[in-house]
Design a binder for these strands. Structure first.
Lengths: 192, 192
DNA sequence: GTGCCTACGTGATGTATATCACATTCTGCA
DNA sequence: TGCAGAATGTGATATACATCACGTAGGCAC
């Protein structure tokens, strides 16, 4: 299945577009390939695009003053990613994004998204629901952070995304869970 | 300023509606008054409405198996609140909402929101941006949780909402920060 | 193959915070 | 006004986790 078809089916779950409308929408996306390790958005950058993942795995992360990294999102196929704070508010990036594996994405500029949302009611409908789901996921993760200990969050992550365990190095999983790599290692080996 | 005018100005910041369109939108809201301590949504309830706060302060919270409470949101005037997971997915409430002070709200049913979004492109635009902002706030709080210690999060909360300090009991602030009330008390008295 | 860099494991130690227990102060209201 | 319950302060102890230090194993360049 090619990128266009993947996006089409993804959107069809939420919004009803004619083929012509989808073709018009799709004409604003730009395909892009990245190699493992390549940087998509770097802290301080001007942010113009958001990215729809076709294949591979990216990470969106924040680096604090003590050079500690926190991972906000592992972006897998059919996920959207960007520094949305910077994108929506036209500020410089505080979040960086790079590729954990080789990856193919479709880029959509902020300007074009707003233009299309304005032109096509159903596109606006789609993007409203996409954000709804992101909001719910974010709130769920926040609750999990407050309520569960590290071990429970680790098991929750792996049961949700079993492919992550073999795909990404453990210190990145630790950075997602917000614990040190040492603690994660001990947790993993402690219980059988 | 009455409830209708407050909602009108709130929406006008994001979307352009004619007076007729706004009147039509507003006709779907239902005004409601609550007393301090009154429950709006209780865990296990069927959730049909979301709430736009006109006056007062509500809290949206989660109670875990060990009867510990975590506060997801203090809902202040011009904020929206509900158990959005239950509302969007038509499941039973896992989040409860009650009133910290006497409060006035405008209720909007999920059914009516979707109907209006379908009928009025600008309404869909408004709700997309409302959720965008909620998503960004949630992500920011998640990052703050991972990156900052309790004291920094406490100061961040009070600098963002100074009125909270006198409005809500400290054990609720602790439940928002995700620490015990004892720790919050010690933190507060430790530094000067 | 040699050497280097990255990932990963593991022990020792320090620290922030939870938890339990109890004292004190505040507040609504009968 | 006085009282009960809620809110808050504070000490003692336990614990999860960070941090530092060091060791090992695997992949890749040359």
């Amino acid at each position: 299945m090619d990128a266009k078809e993947i996006l089409k089916q993804h959107i069809a779950k939420t919004a009803t577009l004619t083929d012509e409308q989808f073709d018009y929408l799709f004409s604003h996306f730009k395909a892009q390939s990245y190699k493992k390790g390549q940087v998509v958005i770097s802290e301080g950058d001007k942010v113009d695009n958001e990215y729809f993942v076709i294949s591979g795995c990216l990470k969106a992360f924040f680096i604090n003053d003590e050079i500690k990294m926190y991972i906000l999102q592992f972006a897998m196929p059919t996920w959207w990613t960007s520094d949305y704070g910077a994108l929506y508010n036209h500020t410089r990036a505080t979040i960086s994004i790079d590729c954990i594996t080789d990856a193919e994405v479709l880029c959509l500029s902020n300007h074009d998204r707003e233009k299309i949302c304005n032109e096509l009611h159903q596109a606006e409908h789609f993007f409203r629901w996409r954000t709804n789901r992101g909001y719910l996921a974010s709130q769920k993760r926040l609750l999990s952070f407050m309520n569960n200990d590290t071990k429970a969050r680790y098991e929750e992550l792996l049961s949700l995304y079993p492919q992550l365990y073999n795909l990404v190095p453990k210190h990145l999983i630790a950075a997602y869970l917000g614990v040190s790599r040492e603690t994660l290692s001990r947790l993993y080996h402690a219980h059988k």
